[in-house]
Design a protein around this nucleic acid. Sequence first.
DNA 1: CGAGATTCATGTGAAGTATACCTTTAGGCTTAA
DNA 2: AAGCCTAAAGGTATACTTCACATGAATCTCGTA
Length: 424
Amino acid sequence: MTPDRWNGDYMPTDLNEMFNKYLTKKSIFANKNALTIAFKPNELPHREKEIEQLVGMLAPALRNDKPSNIFIYGKSGTGKSVVSQYVASELGRVASETNGNVKVVYVNCKMRRVADTEYRLLGEIARQFGENVPETGLPTDAIYKIFEKKLDSKEQILILILDEIDYLVNRIGDDILYNFTRYNESLKNAKISLVGISNDLSFSDKLDSRVKSSLSEEEIVFAPYDAVQLQDILKKRADVAFVIDAVDDGVIAKCAARTAQEHGDARKALDLLRVAAEISERMGDIKITDKHVNMAQDKIDVDRVVEVIKTQPKQSQLVLWSIINLLEGKLQPTQKKLSPNGKVVIETGDIFNVYEKMCGKYGLGKLTQRRVSDLIAELDSLGIINAIVISKGRYGRTREVKLAISDQALEKVKDIFTNELYFD
DNA sequence: CGAGATTCATGTGAAGTATACCTTTAGGCTTAA
DNA sequence: AAGCCTAAAGGTATACTTCACATGAATCTCGTA
């Protein structure tokens, strides 16, 4: 029987029922989007001060004065992007109602294949001006010319918001920023104001001093949310996202408290709540409870670890797999060593031996011990393993390695690696 | 018995190499006048 | 002819190697009490 001949007749009745049950079941979600980053809330609680600051700094544009260049700092999930996008769109709206000489362009520099090189960034900006630029093919200064001509074609003020600007500068340097700040001297009609957004607080140290001084004429710092503020934010979103009575305040408070302990990242708090809700829905419960939040926290932790490991290069994964095997005792170290408290201790030499065997087994090229040593250090800084350098006196010096992930995550990772084809 | 030298097993740094991927650019192709 | 695309040329970041030297406490050595 080929798949294209399948129809309702072939579908087992219990499957039919299952689908129907899913369709008719009441969802606890009223609007799930409200818990994602794409959602633009119509109020931004606890950011009134920052909004006011930013508006104050950008408002001169409405009187045709060039606003200062602005630098916005803050850790991730503190509302930098939402606030600047919100203010920018409001400014654009007000401007178009009055004189219409303000143009706001928002670019996220981290978006791969969109704005992560000089060429692509300029192309993207030109495109937002309604200019049709090819994605590739033109020399970079041609793009500069197109952009300059379009911009200077009438009297206007461009407010250019560069989100994740630290990423851009790390990749392609700060020349492009210097060019932007210099434009104001050569342009006859138009003016440019830059708004740079970065979550790296030490970012401005990396800039050329000329760029640094002109870019940070004004600065705004976004502090992390505290538990109370997070709770407020979650509550507002939850009102939109869920049907009435699906969540208790206690549950929201718990999500807020959990996230506040880490870095007060609002995005993470929303994720936690959303995943908890998804779990409770899948379990067929009509209310989100503490239990669901705990499960969600576990799931997020596991997913994070799995994600990090999956994106590691193959060799690094194989080193990790060697470590796991050693710790699980499947492959004995040549001479089994025990620490005083009876726990199995593994060190670089053991790992390298096992790793070499694994390379043979899976047909991967062997790396040198030097490199493996670096890979172990990397796994440590990723928080997947715990490796401390110790000196054993006459018996040399090594790293003592332990796993630093939860049992659930470990099971999942073993699952992935055990898959026959994984290392081919 | 204790100060200092020695030793082991690997950490760490610097510099060089191979490779994959990216940008640039020139030349060719297409389209519209 | 202008605009657009593409393939080769040239650059650059990444992953790795090679060589060389650094570490630091257990252990050894040897002079002294």
